[in-house]
Design a binder for these strands. Sequence first.
DNA 1: AAGCGGTGCAACCGCGTCTCC
DNA 2: TGGAGACGCGGTTGCACCGCT
Length: 399
Amino acid sequence: MGHHSCCDKKTVNRGLWSPEEDEKLINYISNYGHGCWSCVPKFAGLQRCGKSCRLRWINYLRPDLKRGRFSPEEAALIIELQAILGNKWAQIAKQLPGRTDNEVKNFWNTSIRKKLISYDGPAIATFPDVHFNGNSEEGLFSLNANPNWILNSQQDQLYLPTPTPNLQGFDHGDLKLEQTNYGANLVQFPPPMAPPSNSSSYDPLWSLGYLPHENFDPNQEHQNFSSSGATQRYIGDKLIGPSIATPNYDEDPLIVPMIPNPCEIINGNFDPNQEHQNFGGSGATQRYISDKLIGPSIATPNYDEDPLTVPMIPNPCEIINGNFCGMSYSCASLELDPLARLPHFPVGCNYPYDPHVPNNHMEYMDAIMSSSLPSASTLSALSSGQFAINPNLPSSWET
DNA sequence: AAGCGGTGCAACCGCGTCTCC
DNA sequence: TGGAGACGCGGTTGCACCGCT
């Protein structure tokens, strides 16, 4: 267990910081800035190593830190970002003003991950090959957080649950959701664009990964994913989602379905044996009885016949909150920097899932959700049939 | 009231990356 | 170009606190 070079001295204090040490560090950095961290303890009169000073300042003494419990919005954002980025706590923390990577990491490990682990069994047992950014636990989380992504392996289509009725009337700019036709829930994405140069001006349409398309017709059948197989798409020299099917829609735009939310699952009302909650339909079907997977291949939902054939998906914010209200998830190519489409979550805003709160915070969360869908690697796993969905969910994930 | 276990968080550790010479 | 030091990050540990018995 080697120490940082400046920490080798036996005279260096370790362990908890005393108020006096804190004061010294605050005074020094307030007056001079930290500059070279290795020099800070010397000039500040601290018997600490520079690394320890840096950690103490960043994680505890910084004046812009927001202490206290994580809000549901922050928790939801952490969950979503973790699904996107994996355990990149520093990057996640950058999206949470006033929070440190250590804080986010601790919150994840103590509060969120526990809940996922407590509800892991079937998902792990059923889908041992799931990898998400090379981290099996992240894959596990993705499965649990979004347990109802259904991919038609034959058509290379990723079926995502439809929006909940709560979203009726929810207007994403020019995008109109049509609840009664699953095809209408496939949102069309034009070719990805660069984010606005002024990142401070949040454009919900950009964050959602799409722009209004005047030719969008929610009733057109071919708004499903193309059956022509996976198509590679590039932005510049960047490969975008090699396993994501290119939809045959006006020969160009990406079509991505919206994801609904699983009130029933979260609330414990989900019954996998109920027909409308199955993922049944044409093609091979996966069914669960209790927690056992019945049938070897991927379900193909038949949404045309029964618009209620809607797999549900948990809403992370609701998971944290212990209650649930619906909202949509949208999907865009995640090979773009997902954070480029993520706004900073407004601090102290109202809980955006509250359907009674008529503000546009829903869009923030939608932006988050839109970025939380599987990465290309996950989609590859989906398309190769490596895993499917286990509808068994905890009856309650109270905070 | 005391013991015990669980929980949350501050801090440490090791390693990868960056920067400078 | 390579080496050394500094920095940043993710994983882990240890301890204080709290609730339960």
